[in-house]
Write a protein that binds this DNA or RNA. Structure first.
Lengths: 194, 194
DNA sequence: CTCTGGCTATAACGCTCGTCATAGTCTAGC
DNA sequence: GCTAGACTATGACGAGCGTTATAGCCAGAG
């Protein structure tokens, strides 16, 4: 049986991350998230009593952790290998979904917060970006890059990939990602040698 | 008088671009766009008979042209000057709006299109990115960069800036943009010398 | 068997959405 | 002044939204 039980919670979170990565947070309704996960609407409020914000927050963290785990593993073979895996992951997502999906973390980042407060989903997105950057920067430093350079390069890499994925979706072409990939690889390869 | 007349059309488009850059396309309603431009709701359907899609398309083109015009002008002083102006523009937007606004072109790019068709606003976003890239690439080539390198660097620049602006919004900090700025400036300065 | 507590089913709340229709107002040109 | 056409005012349409409430199911502990 794939339905019911606590594993439904997991399915809802994963499905929410997927839907947010396609349509953005605001265009993704709780009803659709439930349907997509084959869970009843009532269950979403059972598992996520704080409503949509909580669900979005967990979806962002889930996607962030999934990618961070992959990054950590691939970075063991060095920064260039890690970068290649990072780029390859996004390449697969964009192509397999026919340019329909992107990054849920970016999607959450560009929604205006209500005045005077920071929604938890937005804070989670910031934490995910920080996480990814730190993983890259640490690996760069460990392989001989200057500390300041490592930080800047890590930020540039994450930002460029996020931006390029969005550009690929608009253009319905993978070419921007391949161009960005070449530039970043040359950059990072150079930084750990100099 | 600031109300009424054909100049209302302009105000609606400019206001729509601003609102989309803050909340994304889906979270921006026609009613709010009208109110924001101090125009009656009926007027939006008078000026934009195809409804929201048309308004979004014009908003994307408007924002794209505004920035392209600025880029064209600043690039006359060379690629590094153009890049600096580009970065400075986004820096101002992000800071002046207290991390609430970003790029409307990016915002439109990450909305899932209906199956089997490409909404005009998405096509317009792709065209705007192309425009910006071509301006940068041409300037790079004119200043001695190798053609392939120029194209890749232009794509990287646009993507990195777009991605960084989103990161700045999530983190509520301008630091990512300053880091990206340093890296891109070094890169572009290097490319037109070698 | 009974009872408890996790999960589901169903319906409703007030609200906003995109869009359309219709009638009214205003202004320029004759 | 009068008429045409650009613009506005108003209200409605069905639909979907996030959220809440209430009652029901049903496995497993006692």
């Amino acid at each position: 049986m794939t339905k019911g039980g606590p594993q439904a919670r997991q399915r809802i979170v994963a499905g929410a991350a997927d839907m947010i990565s396609r349509r953005g947070l605001n265009a993704t309704s709780i009803r659709e998230m439930a349907k997509h996960a084959e869970a009843p609407l009532g269950s979403t409020y059972h598992y996520f009593p704080e409503g949509k914000q909580q669900l979005a927050t967990e979806a962002v963290r889930y996607a962030g952790e999934t990618i961070a785990r992959m990054l950590r593993k691939e970075l063991e073979a060095g920064p260039v290998a890690g970068l290649r895996a990072f780029l390859g992951l996004w390449r697969t997502i964009v192509i397999d979904t026919e340019f329909r999906a992107g990054c849920p973390v970016l999607a959450v980042s560009i929604e205006e917060p209500p005045p005077g407060e920071i929604p938890p989903a937005l804070a989670a997105a910031a934490a995910v970006f920080d996480d990814w950057e730190k993983l890259l920067a640490n690996s760069l430093r460990e392989h001989g890059a200057a500390p300041g350079q490592a930080e800047q390069l890590a930020t540039l890499t994450v930002a460029a990939v996020e931006g390029t994925v969005a550009m690929c979706r608009a253009k319905r072409s993978i070419e921007p990602l391949d161009r960005t990939a070449e530039q970043l690889q040359a950059l990072i390869a150079g930084a750990i040698k100099g």
